[in-house]
Nucleic acid binder design. Sequence first.
DNA 1: CGAATGTTTGAGGATGCTCAAGGGATGTGG
DNA 2: CCACATCCCTTGAGCATCCTCAAACATTCG
Lengths: 217, 217
Amino acid sequence: MLAESEIEHLENIVQRKKILKKGEFLYHAGDHFEAIHAIRSGSLKSYTISSDGTEQITGFHLPGEIVGLNAISHSTYPSFAKALETSLVCTIPFDKLETLSRDIPGLQKQIFHVMSNEIRDEQNLMMLLSKKNADERFAAFIMNLSARYGRRGLSSKEFQLTMTRSDIGNYLGLAVETVSRLVTRLQGNGLIGIQDRYIQITDMDGLSALAGTSCHH
Amino acid sequence: MLAESEIEHLENIVQRKKILKKGEFLYHAGDHFEAIHAIRSGSLKSYTISSDGTEQITGFHLPGEIVGLNAISHSTYPSFAKALETSLVCTIPFDKLETLSRDIPGLQKQIFHVMSNEIRDEQNLMMLLSKKNADERFAAFIMNLSARYGRRGLSSKEFQLTMTRSDIGNYLGLAVETVSRLVTRLQGNGLIGIQDRYIQITDMDGLSALAGTSCHH
DNA sequence: CGAATGTTTGAGGATGCTCAAGGGATGTGG
DNA sequence: CCACATCCCTTGAGCATCCTCAAACATTCG
């Protein structure tokens, strides 16, 4: 996550924007790595294909976030990045960024911070996957999206889920049917309201409590 | 993961070693962040304490690996790091490293790579947690340790598990009892041999196949 | 030597998956 | 514009995996 000002700073350095329509790829697994990407608008999902051919979603990416950090140590991207909706992406050649970061005070620190944040975010997600039940996972997922939208100055109380129920299930390690049932149940509990993919958090505290570390009753 | 030569390089830069006995902390969650740490020998576990007071293990750390990368973007460590056995750790003040990396060609790249690797490793673990069943998780866990020991020039076929069954279960999102049963079963299948915490991989291909992405029969 | 911690095994039960089916939305070609 | 295919979402019923609870034994440590 970068602040708006920081992204603009990067944009001034490297002016190379790209528009992706829904379903189009930012990159494929195996593509030669040469750049990381800042999302200006829209959303993407990252995923790999496992040996049995199934999709394995590793993350969703919202405006203000950086995609491609997991490729830096390799010559190729280890995952696919696909647009969930029409999206505007700013491409930042990494060798250029590396060089610049040696001269521009603060830029290197910036990159370290972004990467460190990603590491910590993923550790949180790991905990979620290994310790929480279906309800808690889904609640944590929604709260996470809420916080990320909120940070960008967008509404943290209501927003569009740009991914399918199937994507959510894939990401959270749940069956589609389970996700569907969760949506229904949490709506019944009065925690959320959902109309298709438009979600409103009607009880932020309640949802937060559910998402919070499991007390198992 | 750093190569032996790279660690020595770092050591020459910052000569500050520390010996930890089993159960001692390298740092606590909330401690002021000022350094990352390279493990020379022994092993550690990282964990957080959730709001209900239970331990949540986020990783095990072996010789040659770096601990503390998830703290860079914050002023404090987000997790605990505790020695699983007597361990030798090399502490690297991060501000010093940051400064040096601007002058020493390759060092900055080195850090980027280490961090990028950690991001990718965690994405792999996420997939494991969200997609695999108990047998596959455990097999993947053992294969992962095997590869990491192998990379350090140690035996990848037999090694000591320095963590408890409970730690393994905590990390993999399984109950202790399940881990215990898995050990028994995989031993019965002839994939591994275990004597207390000393494990031998007797069928590397078989274990690898089990660890490999689930075909669910 | 007693206490705490770690490991194993068994029995029962709950959570979440699989399988099945139907409806709604979207898109494409005739 | 309609027919048809495809994808997405929902709901139900049965079942499997893995957790919980319980107990016994081993090991470590003060």
